[in-house]
């Protein structure tokens, strides 16, 4: 699954969007991986991740609470942590390296920033997945960049265009704050990887636009 690969945005905005994905590999190191996955999430949560999530069983809302989510992690889960701050991400990388849990870690974000984070945490970039954009009938996509940026924050496309438009309308009419709207977008992304800090900024811009 390409998941966090195709997040659209300008470099300034993406600078505040760093997502870690942590997972075991089938038949190599998946047996007994559940406590390691949980430990990873606890490290990230304690060091300032704004969101943590579990792709296998669903985010904190799908599972009823953050505690349930942590308790229900299974071997072979894929778990995530979202950071909006480079320093916190570097500290988490150092702690994960130190914990030496032995599962695979993927860092999603600006490549030059990832390079710098890895250097500071004493890690090396091993394999890279590069997005080469959208091909085909791009004329059928929404024109507003902000809508595409919010939609692509969920790798499974669960943050629908109509729900983004609905949220913008709610902000414009004063029924939702941008923060509440961002949290509601997060709920739709069952893996829990919507960056709510970035989403707030994009929602504010969209709700200030005319029309």
């Amino acid at each position: 699954m390409t998941h966090t690969l195709h997040r659209l945005g300008n470099s300034e905005s993406l600078r505040h969007d760093i997502v870690f994905t942590y997972m075991p590999s089938n038949n190599i190191n998946h047996v007994g991986s559940a406590p390691k996955l949980r430990k990873f999430l606890e490290i990230c949560r304690d060091l300032g991740a704004i969101k943590i999530g579990d792709t296998r069983k669903g985010n904190e809302y799908v599972q009823g609470s953050l505690e349930n989510m942590l308790n229900n992690i299974e071997d072979r889960a894929v778990v995530e942590a979202v950071f909006d701050n480079e320093i916190k991400a570097i500290n988490a990388l150092k702690a994960i390296k130190e914990a030496d849990l032995g599962l695979s870690l993927v860092v999603s974000g600006l490549f030059e920033q990832t390079r710098e984070c890895c250097r500071k945490a004493g890690l090396n970039m091993h394999t890279v997945n590069q997005s080469l954009g959208i091909w085909g009938r791009t004329d059928k996509l929404p024109e507003k960049r902000g809508i595409l940026e919010l939609n692509t924050m969920c790798g499974h496309g669960m943050v629908s265009v109509s729900f983004i438009e609905y949220a913008v309308k709610k902000i414009k009419t004063g029924k939702w704050t941008p923060e509440k709207a961002a949290e509601n977008l997060f709920k739709c992304c069952v893996c829990g990887i919507v960056n709510t800090t970035r989403a707030v900024e994009i929602l504010k811009e969209l709700s200030e636009e005319k029309g």
């Binding site: 870690l105 860092v107 091993h126 997945n129």
Partner: peptide, 9 residues
């Protein structure tokens, strides 16, 4: 931006 495996496995 994109994904980078950082070789911790």
């Amino acid at each position: 931006n994109g994904k980078t495996n950082v070789g911790l496995g």
